[in-house]
């Protein structure tokens, strides 16, 4: 019995190490490659080139701006919808969950052409407006926002908390801002950072709608240069991990909160 337990423990460690190697070796290789910008020595010259390029900052700021709009529009649309579905029409939940998977099933290129076709002519001529890009980003971010919020709502026992607040005289606005949203903080942070990470790296919509976003910039650099794309990949990876760490850090102080990333605990 004791030997069996030890073997199981050794096997767990073995698979964990294999998993970590599988994950970190490519990352380490990319990082090492990004340091070989100067012949014969390891240096951060590729990173210096990246930061020195004005298009880097411009495209990054543009994408940052778009991600803020996407987060605001996405949360304003999806949070009340998820609350309404959980409270009033729980039977519609499977339908919404199916919809939330659509961005994974329908390629972004189809979404982009659909948007261009639909919004090309008056009175909905929005192709040249960044609003269309934001709308597309909201669709792509829908699964991350909806699933994060839905998991948060499910774990807080929304119906009973709402009824408790109602019995104490609270109206809908008080319930939303004093009870539901404070208890959704972790889920909202998770939705926010996942949306940010998605928008920052998004390529297809930005290219097809012709916007100077960070995704197309990275693709452009990858096509023309050797070491800088590796540096950008590492920077992009660090931003994603930075976002996830921030979720963990900011949700530390929330009483009884569990960290949820994209609907997973």
């Amino acid at each position: 019995m004791k030997n069996g337990g030890a073997t199981r423990k050794a096997m767990s460690w073995f698979w964990l190490i294999i998993g970590l190697l599988y994950f970190f070796i490519p990352l380490l290789s990319t990082f090492l490659f990004s340091l070989k910008g100067k012949k014969g020595v390891l240096s951060f010259v590729a990173y210096q080139h990246v930061f020195a390029d004005p298009k880097f900052l411009q495209s990054f700021l543009f994408s940052l701006q778009m991600s803020v709009y996407t987060i605001i529009v996405g949360l304003v649309l999806i949070v009340p919808t998820a609350i309404l579905i959980n409270l009033k029409i729980p039977k519609a939940k499977p339908v919404i969950e199916l919809f939330s998977l659509m961005p994974f099933v329908i390629p972004p290129v189809v979404l982009a052409f659909g948007l261009i076709k639909f919004y090309a002519n008056p009175p909905l001529a929005l192709v040249s407006s960044p609003a269309l890009l934001v709308a597309g980003y909201v669709v792509i971010s829908f699964p991350y926002i909806y699933r994060s919020v839905d998991t948060g709502l499910t774990s807080m026992d929304l119906k009973v908390l709402t009824e408790a607040a109602q019995s104490l005289g609270a109206g809908w606005l008080s319930i939303l801002f004093k009870v539901i949203l404070p208890n959704l903080r972790t889920a909202l942070l998770s939705a926010t950072f996942l949306t940010f990470a998605t928008v920052i790296g998004e390529l297809t919509l930005a290219v097809l709608l012709a916007w100077p976003a960070f995704g197309p910039y990275m693709a452009h650099v990858g096509r023309d240069l050797a070491y800088e794309p590796a540096a950008l990949a590492i920077l992009s990876f660090m931003m994603t991990w930075g976002s996830i760490s921030l979720i963990q850090f900011l949700s530390r102080g929330i009483p009884g909160a569990k960290s949820e990333i994209g609907g997973l605990h």
Partner: peptide
């Protein structure tokens, strides 16, 4: 009349305290 305007205190099976 909606529950918020009935002025009745309610205690639930699973406490329903606000976790925040």
């Amino acid at each position: 009349v909606p529950p918020a305007r009935r002025n009745l205190g309610m205690v639930f099976q699973n406490y329903a305290l606000f976790p925040n």
